[in-house]
Amino acid sequence: MSHFAGVDIGSLAIKCVIVNDAMDIVAKAVVPTGARVAQAGEAALRAALESGGVDPVSIALTIATGYGRKRVAADARVTEITCHARGAVHLFPGTRTVLDIGGQDTKAIRVGAKGEVANFAMNDKCAAGTGRFLEVMARALEVDLEDLGPLSRESTKPQTISSFCTVFGESEVVSHIADGAEIKDIARGLHAAIAQRVIGLLKRVGIEAELTMSGGVARNVGMRDAIERELGLTLNVSDESQIIGALGAALIARQRYLNTGEEPR
């Protein structure tokens, strides 16, 4: 049996997914990116092969995606825009909009009726509205990043964070702390600030249900709550949200290898 690998080189984590001929996920791995991207990419593939007991020789095609896609060995490279759309449509076939909030960038993707990318928008160079923003704020609040979302759900008096900028936002957080605001209320305000930012991005491509959220930040319940509150709709969120880009890359690898032409790109 042939297998197909997708390696998504993100700024904070490298995700690897291996699928089989039937498009089932047979192995996956997530490793920190670190400073040596090429080695980390190989480590992610190795970890995925080991976790699924997959013979490396059975990998028929590997596609790299993500910001570091050109820095790792692969048979082909596809942008994370196309891969996230492909992965999201595979998991949620009714997907028409994808929101990917990653470690250092955010993407809004409109998907056409056949699951193809119709339009997209990305955030600018700055970290506003990305996972990095939450990371910096979690540090300022002295809480673990993973706890930020659940903590925000306990908020009874949400604080307002008016700045999207990571630097100014951190100053506002410090001011709220100095004023005696509770951490859970500041956390809720932070998620609301990012939600407003990413909704602006989504509106640039047009928001159409179903909206699927991908990327590491999709695991943050506080973030999901804030976006759903702002938009008034329920997001598709998978347990595999962090690996959707890698999954899309693996599926595209399979499609190219088999040249079936049956699935959306």
Binding site: E80, E116, V117, A118, F120, M122, K125
Partner: peptide
Amino acid sequence: DFDEDPTGFGPVLTRLEAFAEI
């Protein structure tokens, strides 16, 4: 969008390549 900053072209290339894929 652009300015005269000669750095940070990675996201620009991603946008262009994604457009090419479309």
